[in-house]
């Protein structure tokens, strides 16, 4: 696009602002199906329109020239917010592409330059559309990463069972990333609470392979190095068989079939006695 074309386009856009915006907004509104309010949408489109007009005014010849930097930032903001609000990629891209149709009708009958101008304008808007798409995908990726991190945090609570006894109920498949989080949180909890006993409950772990066992063993050894004892509980029969057939050695690590046994073991080791209250009927 040459400077002349930019200037011509900028002039048209300024002169026909209201008409183009009106057409553009109504085209975009059809695809939104009422998920954005009219004022919100109009505001967003006006921002883009004005930025585009001033980019042309400043002589922007392609979408990545410095004069269009503001425009790109505004478009990126728009597609990021669309991505976060659950709009599809098409809906987001159409918001930009609809501008072409809207402007075409308003270019007027200025003869041979009309077609050439429109083609150049079209190329420019295509670039913008691609930028929208890329930002949209990036924003979605960020959302996914964020959520998987949150999931990781949520899925590994460390609970205090008794004075000096903490437990980690593990639920779901253990991979390296997750077991790293579990390990760090458990050890930090031991330090924070000064608990000499920790119970790793694997009732909710669907399968134990050598790698998972390795992670569990590492956690237990790290806890032992820090001066705490780790008890593994919730080993289901199939898992016990797998462990033996895989030849995994748990060595001196205390393992219990269920959480209750593990808690009882820890309490005894801490010198806590649990007794039923003596009732009248028992006497």
């Amino acid at each position: 696009m040459d400077a002349e074309t930019s200037a011509r386009l900028a002039a048209v856009m300024v002169a026909r602002r209201e008409a183009v915006l009106e057409k553009w907004a109504s085209a975009v509104r059809d695809t939104m199906r009422g998920r954005l309010t009219r004022t919100e949408l109009t505001q967003q489109l006006e921002d883009i329109y004005d930025a585009l007009a001033s980019a042309f005014g400043a002589g922007a010849e392609t979408a990545d020239s410095p004069a269009a930097a503001d425009l790109l930032a505004i478009v990126a903001d728009l597609s990021r917010s669309r991505a976060r609000h659950g709009f599809t990629a098409t809906e987001t891209a159409v918001s930009i592409f609809a501008l072409k149709d809207a402007l075409l009708d308003e270019l007027g009958d200025s003869g041979e330059t009309r077609l050439a101008d429109f083609v150049k304008f079209s190329l420019f808007v295509d670039k913008l559309g691609l930028h929208t798409f890329e930002t949209y995908v990036n924003a979605r990726d960020a959302v996914i990463t964020e959520q998987s991190e949150q999931l990781l945090e949520l899925s590994t609570p460390v609970v205090k069972l008794w004075d000096g006894v903490v437990a980690v109920p593990l639920i779901g498949t253990l991979d390296s990333a997750r077991s790293q989080v579990v390990m760090e949180r458990l050890l930090q909890m031991l330090v924070d609470t000064g608990s000499p006993y920790a119970i790793l409950d694997i009732t909710g772990v669907p399968a134990v392979d050598t790698q998972v066992a390795q992670h569990i063993l590492k956690t237990v050894m790290a806890a032992q190095l820090m001066g705490a004892q780790c008890i593994i509980s919730g080993i289901r029969p199939q898992i016990a068989q797998t462990i033996v057939s895989l030849g995994i050695e748990f060595g001196e690590i205390v393992t219990k079939a269920n959480l209750s046994d593990a808690l009882q073991y820890a309490l005894r080791a801490r010198g806590v006695e649990i007794a039923r209250p003596v009732t009248r009927s028992a006497l």
């Binding site: 050890l187 330090v191 000064g194 790290a222 820090m226 001066g227």
Partner: peptide, 26 residues
């Protein structure tokens, strides 16, 4: 006493079990 979690993890990863040393949390 007072070994940090990060230190314990590193020692386990390195395979240094600190044999013959008793440990406590605090």
């Amino acid at each position: 006493v007072g070994m940090r979690p990060a230190v314990a993890i590193t020692l386990v990863e390195l395979g240094l079990p600190l044999r013959g040393v008793r440990t406590a949390l605090n």
